[in-house]
């Protein structure tokens, strides 16, 4: 077996919905368990994942989401309160399946040494300050991510 291997994963998190917050955190924490190193670059709405106290309040979008286990027609999904309803249902299912909370995965990622990079440019655009983010976050730009990723990283975007 002489297949080239990589021991590094570089992930971009662009979205702030619950379903899209899980994969970056699951992959990064699992990478640590596989003796790999990991970085996540949080940009645009992905910054919500690392806002203080926000991780467990991320929501599911019922609109334009035909994959909901109970499909919600868009015309119903756009009614006030439907996002909360969909999120409540999803949270219930996640809890029944005993899935770790996003806040727990975040803590494991930070404490395990995942490099957590918040995108400076989108922080400025959205008026987010470093003190709005959880501890252990580095603020950086595209070069910080690329420099990390260019060293033989598996790269994924969510």
């Amino acid at each position: 077996m002489t297949e080239p291997t990589s021991n590094r994963i570089a992930i971009i998190a662009v979205h702030g919905t619950m379903d899209l917050a899980y994969p970056p955190l699951i992959l990064a924490t699992s990478a640590l368990a596989l003796d790999m190193e990991a970085a996540i670059f949080f940009t645009f709405f992905g910054l919500d994942i690392i806002k203080k106290g926000k991780a467990d309040k991320l929501q599911i979008a019922p609109i334009a989401n035909p994959s909901m286990p109970m499909p919600v027609p868009n015309i119903v999904g756009m009614l006030p309160g439907m996002t909360a309803v969909a999120t409540g249902m999803m949270n219930g299912w996640m809890k029944n399946a005993n899935v770790a909370k996003l806040s727990d995965l975040l803590t494991l990622a930070v404490e395990g040494g995942v490099r957590m990079i918040a995108c400076q440019m989108t922080m400025d655009v959205m008026g987010i300050k470093k003190e709005d983010l959880i501890d252990g976050i580095e603020v950086g730009g595209a070069a910080a991510f690329l420099s990390y990723a260019s060293q033989n990283a598996i790269t994924l975007s969510f």
Partner: peptide, 13 residues
């Protein structure tokens, strides 16, 4: 027992 991905791997490590 009862734990979902990725916790078994993280705890095993």
């Amino acid at each position: 027992s009862g734990l979902a991905c990725p916790m078994p791997i993280l705890k095993t490590k």
